[in-house]
Amino acid sequence: MSARIGVVTFPGTLDDIDAARAVRIGGAEPVNLWHADEDLAGIDAVILPGGFSYGDYLRCGAISRFAPLMTRVIERAHEGMPVLGICNGFQILCESHLLPGALARNDGLHFVCRDQWLRVENSNTAWTTAYSPDSEILVPLKNGEGRFVADDYTLDQLEGEGRVVFRYLRGNPNGSYRDIAGICNENGNVVGLMPHPEHAVEDLTGPSLDGVGLITSVIENYVAQESFA
């Protein structure tokens, strides 16, 4: 049985079909989840996709964290279920306090859409074991509020504990502190990043196939767990 990876749709979520496609291409079964549901439908992992949930009114991700489904996601995240937040999903994870820091308006104040090089700095998280250490990957980046900010203490802690998962290479696109593109929680099961690996899964539509590794990482870990069980 293949891993079941949930993809959550909030009102205003935009990249949900993309995340579901990436899950399928990676070899897992995508499960569509609606923000108002309270049942996680027996999923093994979950992706909070990109978009502008609730119009990003008030503050990006600030309303979504209170969605009924998020209560269950937060509970399961604390129990160790792999959770991936992409772009707006990353913002929701920060608002939910599953990850530290916040995402602020880009330097330059413009929305930026471009193909972005990243280095995988931690290949031991639930979502990155398929990458060899320090691999460089190329994935699309597209956001207006993607500048990762946190206080120095938090930044030092993230660096010290190896919780910087992705770092921008060859140019910081938005002024993120310490070129941070993505981070994880202490257990490494919750990962958030601003760039969009789900848009780098097909030759036809993406700049590379580098995004598939996030999905195959979860599948590998799932299979490993199953065989232990």
Partner: peptide
């Protein structure tokens, strides 16, 4: 570059190509 050309994952060609192509 201020426009999202990736969303929905079906963009095959976008500016500055001769024409936009979607699947």
């Amino acid at each position: 570059n201020q426009y999202d050309r990736y969303v929905r994952g079906n963009t095959v060609l976008a500016q500055p190509e001769d024409a936009g192509v979607v699947r």
